[in-house]
Design a protein around this nucleic acid. Structure first.
Lengths: 334, 334
DNA sequence: CTGTTAGCGCCTTCAA
DNA sequence: TTGAAGGCGCTAACAG
């Protein structure tokens, strides 16, 4: 370290130290195309000696690229931190980006789309992944046509947008069919929120399965994918209907449902059979283990990330829709 | 919107549209000091009409400030996502920053300090909060004297550095004293990792309490704050010692300890009494509820954030060390 | 209160 | 292969 000043060294100083021009220094630092071995070595050396790191702001200004992408979680932070799916998304995206030069910027949006949209529009990041969008957070419009964006979880307004999602309809149908095959005839559901497509789609799958079996589908209550809301929804469901099985739209919510059942002295699976959705750790902690549908959140995230990376390279790529399959994970709750 | 081009509008265009100079437009946009009402209105109008947002890279280059701060989690991502304390830190910092103009950049460092230090040195962010530093990730040196930094959890090398921490030594002592007062005489510990001060300090507190009571402190095994590691540590402990109580350095680890006890048919608290540390949700889910020490992670995070903010404003502030108290949260495990 | 004038640090044509 | 020159978009003295 021969740094004199406290300031970070600039490209100018590197060039001077190496005895070349700024342009040559710049080339040597970025890929080294069209640079003589001599010059390259001199620059490398100077960089080392000075401990030079390119100023990201200057570079971003010149290249119009920030080298970072955003992961947007449109949920209040306490919900986010209690949701295995969203945490899985963070982990998946973070992991997929780790092998890259790109930096992850986490945006927990607390439902202030204005600020969020502005942030993305302003060009703070080169692109974004948006997890589990809600109807009503009008992210789609605000962002259309700006930087590349990939959704995890199908957005309501999907034309022109890229997304990856798990096949919720099929998954919910398969889950419900398990209950049908087990001989249950009064099958209710604690559904997800209606302002999210995951909630809607799993509800539809439940309906489809019951229709196909000629069973009624009037026993349904919605909750917002949280434990307490699911508990309350289950209470309402049990008050109004005499069910012998429940398809719960997420394992997290199944915890709440179990609490309601326990309080009434209803046994699982004897009195009420249960099937959940996600298999992200919660299911296997329950007694008996919850029968559920897998949710390949890491694959989803990796896929979304690579789709985004592709669009960073070539923004003209057409929108792409990916639906990943889910499979039954048997437990003892049916 | 009268935008013609697809490009984002620049300050230049705003100025032209408003019929003023760039500087006036700039002033109007930043605070509006020394700007006539007329000019202010004209600029506001133009901004509105054009949908102008300042280019962050350009602004950062000119002001030498990025408007963002980093939260550094020096853990592999899967550990981070299973650690209630670290998730609490994320939540606390995120919440404290929400009322600010500052953007949070989450850095999960996966133990590649090189890349991390470079990122911070390069000036991507104006400052950083580093959670639970480990001995060996030489973050302290690499960062000293650059941007303002506040640690959550005392760093090993603390001179010249600011940090906030919970009073681990006192907390561990109080926890162990509960066991002593309950009449236990063979009190072991499943300690935290020795490469973290939290692990060390809680171990020291346990020792102090036993010393004061005239009891031996040879029954100790360390683990890394994860469930499986704690389970293994408990196995070793139980193999080698006949204990009637264990102070476990975190509630998460207490889950692992419980598994080991259960497997041997040892009852809590009858055969072995347990006290944990953290009270971040896990303790109340255990049966019987785990007796533990509170860990005010949200306060810690808020405090760290405000310390950082203060140093962003005035970098010359002297280092500050804050130790927050912990208190006993009674359960049924003693 | 306003406009002019310089940069902030880097990348990138363009000629040489 | 190299260097000179201009520009990315914004802010901040400095005169006026």
């Amino acid at each position: 370290m021969s740094t004199i000043s406290g300031r970070a060294p600039t490209l100018d100083e590197v060039a001077r130290e190496a005895g070349v021009s700024r342009s040559t220094a710049s080339r040597a630092i970025n890929g080294g195309k069209r640079v003589s071995p001599t010059a390259q070595a001199a620059v490398d050396d100077a960089v080392q000696r000075l401990g030079f790191t390119p100023n990201p702001a200057a570079r971003a200004l010149a290249t119009q690229q920030t080298g970072s992408v955003a992961l947007v979680i449109p949920e209040p932070d306490d919900r986010f931190l209690n949701d295995p799916f969203l945490l899985g998304v963070l982990r998946g995206v973070s992991g997929a980006l780790a092998v890259t030069e790109l930096q992850l910027v986490l945006l927990i949006s607390n439902r202030t789309p204005g600020r969020l949209v502005r942030y993305l529009q302003a060009g703070h990041v080169d692109g974004a992944i948006i997890a589990s969008p809600h109807r009503g957070d009008h992210l789609e419009e605000g962002l259309r046509g700006s930087r590349p964006i990939v959704f995890i979880g199908r957005p309501f307004e999907m034309n022109g947008l890229s997304f990856v999602d798990v096949d919720n309809v099929t998954g919910a149908r398969l889950a419900t069919e398990v209950l049908v095959r087990a001989g249950r005839t009064r099958i209710g559901t604690v559904a997800g929120p209606t302002d999210m497509t995951a909630g809607q789609d799993r509800f539809i799958g439940w309906q489809e399965a019951l229709d196909a079996a000629g069973l009624p589908h009037d026993a349904a209550e919605a909750a917002d994918f949280s434990v307490p809301a699911a508990e309350a929804a289950a209470e309402r469901l049990l008050d109004a209907h005499d069910v012998d099985a429940i398809f719960v739209a997420s394992d997290t919510m199944a915890v709440g449902v179990r609490r309601a059942l326990d309080r009434r002295g209803l046994r699982v699976p004897d009195d009420v059979a249960l099937v959940g959705f996600d298999d992200l750790g919660t299911a296997e902690l329950m007694h008996p283990r919850l029968t559920t549908m897998s949710n390949p959140v890491l694959d989803l995230s990796a896929r979304a990330t690579s789709m985004l990376l592709a669009r960073l390279t070539d923004p003209s790529l057409p929108p792409e829709h990916v639906l990943l399959p889910t499979r039954l994970v048997p437990g003892g709750s049916v």
